[in-house]
Design a protein around this nucleic acid. Sequence first.
DNA 1: ATGAAAGCGCTAACAT
DNA 2: ATGTTAGCGCTTTCAT
Lengths: 325, 325
Amino acid sequence: MTTQREIARRAKTSLKTVSRVINRDPLVNAKTRARIEAIIAEIGYEPHQAARMMRSQRSGIIGFLADEVATTSSSIELIRGAQDAAWATRKQMMLFNIERGGESEKLAEAQLTAFRAEAVVYAARYHQPIEIGPKAVPYVLLNCFDPEDRHTAFVPDDYQLGHDVTKAMFARGYRRPVFLNLHGVFVAAQLRARGFIDAGKSLGFDLVPHVYPGADEHGFIANRVLPGLMAGPNRPDIILCGQDILAMEAYFVLAEHGYVVGRDVAVASFDNLEPIASLLHPGLSTIELPYYEMGYAAMQAAIDPPPGKPIRHKLTGRLVERASF
Amino acid sequence: MTTQREIARRAKTSLKTVSRVINRDPLVNAKTRARIEAIIAEIGYEPHQAARMMRSQRSGIIGFLADEVATTSSSIELIRGAQDAAWATRKQMMLFNIERGGESEKLAEAQLTAFRAEAVVYAARYHQPIEIGPKAVPYVLLNCFDPEDRHTAFVPDDYQLGHDVTKAMFARGYRRPVFLNLHGVFVAAQLRARGFIDAGKSLGFDLVPHVYPGADEHGFIANRVLPGLMAGPNRPDIILCGQDILAMEAYFVLAEHGYVVGRDVAVASFDNLEPIASLLHPGLSTIELPYYEMGYAAMQAAIDPPPGKPIRHKLTGRLVERASF
DNA sequence: ATGAAAGCGCTAACAT
DNA sequence: ATGTTAGCGCTTTCAT
């Protein structure tokens, strides 16, 4: 690869002038600039990033620690959002898939130190508290938060989501909603359940969410719980599921017991997990979480930390309407 | 951040000796080494990667261009495999989500040049031919291949997969298989169909795969084709679907027409797309593609290019058995 | 086994 | 508007 020195030699000018052209410094004579730019284009020169980093003492690199995030398709949106935000600011995002507390986390952090990363975005697969102590560079938490709020964080506004969807259900005439949830998404489940309860209360209904702590295995809730509810005295007219996967389970279990979704009972859910949500029959109406926006905002905050105390930002989602409710 | 010079000053030794310790050069006195290592641990020194790159003239960076790959959950395994392989060799993988032929591809390549990436892995979402001309650094194609085989490539052995699963179906007593496929996975569909036909032929059966060019929309095949086949004169005893998504469609369509998977007809498929495959009732028996291994092997080949002409490597998968067949 | 000197490619700081 | 000098932190080369 060629260097600026070589370009300077060819252009019969100094090293610094070449540097100026490359860095878009306006204080260069138009003709000189044109001559240099022609040479650059001709030989296909690209500046040496490592040399820049070293001399300028700024790496332009932002780390992204993905705690198992990249294995879930929806949370990939977190990465896409962050990537786009980094890109827009001409920063380089460096991605690491890690296991929290494991060797991979230590190694990734060492790499980020070696590259003198200017900030780090730490993303979790589920909305959860994660204890992260003081750091040498800004840490922004994504889909998770420090219990003591020592770091800026971006999370979904699960309370609001639970509240909104519940009001939407009542607005459409449903009066006997059931909210089923797993333990695996604990923070989200709790917050949404409170939103569900409060929304019911504000409408004069006394709702009770069905959250099953410890019931992590797929199928448990749908198989064991749903048939009883449907055959019970107060048969639900809509089933709100904590996640699309659970909703999918519900579809199957309901079908096995002779109930048809959309006719005998409505279904709503959280995630908008494609292609499942759109391929279920009828299509699943579900709350899409703002993962792309969260990733984008987190990266922006990492690149350009706002002054003042760290804030836990809550972003709201939107209902994607299909036929299930 | 501290520098080696500072460590040398504290250890009352020369810069070079510190460098030797850090780079595990054995030609250092044990006591000197211990003293220096203690200081390194104490102040938490990490070598400056940019300086290393510049001086050693090797970046240790391998690019990974993901052509829309990261949006599909199964193909994320490509990235995980590549990441792990890079890691194992102490290389740094630099990931870019790009759109083929778009601005993002150009920008990503410029970045990789700026970082003096030593090699690039180019991954596609579907097994397909991709025209990639000569490059300044080794390019390894992943889940795609150059039509003229100018670059090393790693793809699934779709012919073999089609062959194997067909033989497995016959071995279990099925005699009237139907192979349904979409156009969207064209190369894979064609190769698998040939494997399907050839396996049938080797067993004395004249099989005809049902591939629907142009029928890209979800639901088309399952809805329009399946009911006719089931009600027709030569009702299939097993339905082999080109992808798990299609199999999921088939489950629904079959159920709507009163057929029960596992009782009235068996289903097999390709992908092992979780959590769909394990959550369908009965669980979907499906061919898992070796994405992780492909990613791993591609990264290894990028880091350490084998001599000789580029080869298109075909990796085989495995049947994940559940209850659907 | 250890060290001194040079220099990778670039940009900051300071001339001119 | 352009050029000169120095030096970022490290490793290579060559001495000792």
